[in-house]
């Protein structure tokens, strides 16, 4: 019988990880905040051109791991990261690596929209300008327009690009932040609960946007909404108490998870 044959490890990996090229590879990652052991021996493969969702209860380490991917934890003095994280085969904790360049390749969108207190145009133009992505003004303008279009915001703001970014509604601000993130043409976009401050309509817009963006980007999203993870992602990772409990195709995780802890969490049974 087929089931009796021991399948090689590669075949037991999630389908999406086998179908898409590998983008982020983490091996035996531990993260400490001083004495606190926030992430315990984590290994995961994150595919390109797909959305990967991290779910789990508060304090489970999902945001901590997300912030390790663009080395944002470097800014916390007591934080220590060990193990290995590679993007396209390159160790991102390599001493010779320029962190500023790394963060230009990895965009980030936060829980609360945080536009710069500048005009809508400037919010998007800032990144490409300081990284020298635009040769001239027309070039820059094109990048701003394309980014706003990709973020699904252009039609709503095209007549008031000189207005302040903070004058927009919450959902529009969040899409502005996404436009700002994609303006520097990153390879990876990290999103830390990007919809938790938004109403259902604005949330739906962002989810639609995430679905479009995944064609060209490797997207990693941390979310407290299980339904959102089920809707937008292809790969889901469940974290609990600093451990990566289960990784699998999203379709499998939400219909037939393997681990009891995953089952208990997604069905609302966690005590």
């Amino acid at each position: 019988m087929d089931t009796m044959i021991k399948t090689p490890v590669a075949d037991s990996a999630p389908r999406i990880a086998r179908e898409r090229p590998l983008k982020i590879k983490a091996r035996n990652v531990d993260v400490y905040y001083g004495e606190k052991h926030a992430i315990n021996d984590l290994s995961i493969d994150i595919p390109d051109s797909a959305v990967s969702a991290f779910i789990g209860p508060s304090g489970c380490g999902k945001s901590t791991f997300l912030r390790s991917i663009n080395r944002m934890n470097d800014t916390i003095p007591s934080c220590r990261v060990t193990g290995n994280i590679e993007i396209d085969g390159r160790d991102i904790y390599d001493r010779g690596l320029d962190v500023v360049q790394l963060r230009a390749r990895i965009g980030m969108v936060f829980q609360k929209p945080n536009p710069f207190p500048k005009s809508i145009y400037e919010n998007v133009a800032y990144g490409p300008r300081i990284h020298g992505f635009a040769k001239n003004k027309t070039d820059l303008e094109e990048i701003v327009v394309t980014s706003l279009k990709k973020a699904g915001l252009f039609e709503e703001v095209k007549d008031r690009l000189d207005h302040s970014g903070t004058s927009l509604s919450g959902g529009q601000q969040q899409r502005l932040c996404i436009a700002r993130a994609i303006a520097v043409n990153p390879e990876v976009i990290l999103m830390d609960e990007p919809c938790s401050a938004l109403d259902p309509i604005a949330t739906a817009r962002i989810e639609e946007l995430i679905d479009e963006l995944r064609q060209n980007f490797c997207i990693v999203i941390v979310t407290h909404s299980m339904q959102q993870a089920a809707r937008v992602s292809q790969l889901t990772a469940f974290f609990h108490l600093g451990n990566l409990v289960e990784v699998g195709d999203t379709d499998d995780i939400f219909t037939a998870p393997k681990d009891k802890r995953t089952q208990d969490y997604i069905t609302g049974r966690f005590g």
Binding site: M226, T255, A256, Q263, I266, G268
Partner: peptide, 9 residues
Amino acid sequence: RQPMARDLR
């Protein structure tokens, strides 16, 4: 309830 996993099944 938006059931998941075994509840949904």
